[in-house]
């Protein structure tokens, strides 16, 4: 369905925007050493209570008639991808304290989708939401890069 992990990231980030987040922190960890790929999207939006969270986890797919916010399908897709690739999916949320979605998978798993065009995902989020601080923390065994759409001086550094 979503052929790139960066499309999943965009999808989850759209949920964050729907929850009126002003800051979205995306982290990507790619480690060959441990053969893992871990994605995390944390937002400071309005969050969800336990009942709403349960609906989300039960793959309650929103239909047109009951669509205050079409949350559910995208998360189910990401969970499916993570579990298919020997990984885990987790979502934590508290009303007023934002939501954190974490998905891990085996980096070398044959079904693991490519990370894809993370650039396009960030450009889309930044351009459409200039007042939202979109942050990226991208880390591999060798490299570490950080980006924030609200900070004028780039923090990007390479740590060999």
């Amino acid at each position: 369905m979503l052929e790139e992990l960066s499309l999943h990231i965009l999808d989850i980030a759209m949920n964050a925007l729907a929850a009126n987040a002003t800051r979205i922190e995306i982290s990507v960890l790619e480690t060959r050493r441990h053969d893992r790929l871990i994605l995390r999207v944390h937002d400071n939006g309005r969050g969800m209570d336990a009942a709403t969270l349960e609906k989300v986890l039960n793959r309650r797919i929103t239909t047109k008639t009951t669509r205050p916010k079409s949350i559910g399908l995208g998360l189910a897709l990401l969970r499916q991808t993570a579990e298919m690739c020997d990984g885990h999916f987790q979502i934590r949320s508290n009303p007023g304290r934002g939501t954190t979605v974490t998905a891990s998978m085996r980096l070398s798993h044959v079904d693991r989708p490519p990370l894809g065009d993370l650039n396009a995902t960030l450009i889309t989020l930044c351009a459409a939401n200039p007042n939202v601080d979109v942050r990226l923390d991208y880390r591999t065994d060798q490299e570490h890069f950080r980006f924030s759409s609200q900070e004028l001086t780039p923090k990007g550094e390479v740590h060999p």
Binding site: L2, L10, D11, M14, S70, T124
Partner: peptide
């Protein structure tokens, strides 16, 4: 840019 839009290629369009 909902899930269905993204799946259909909305990001590339944007």
């Amino acid at each position: 840019m909902g899930t269905s839009g993204i799946a259909a290629g909305a990001r590339e369009v944007m």
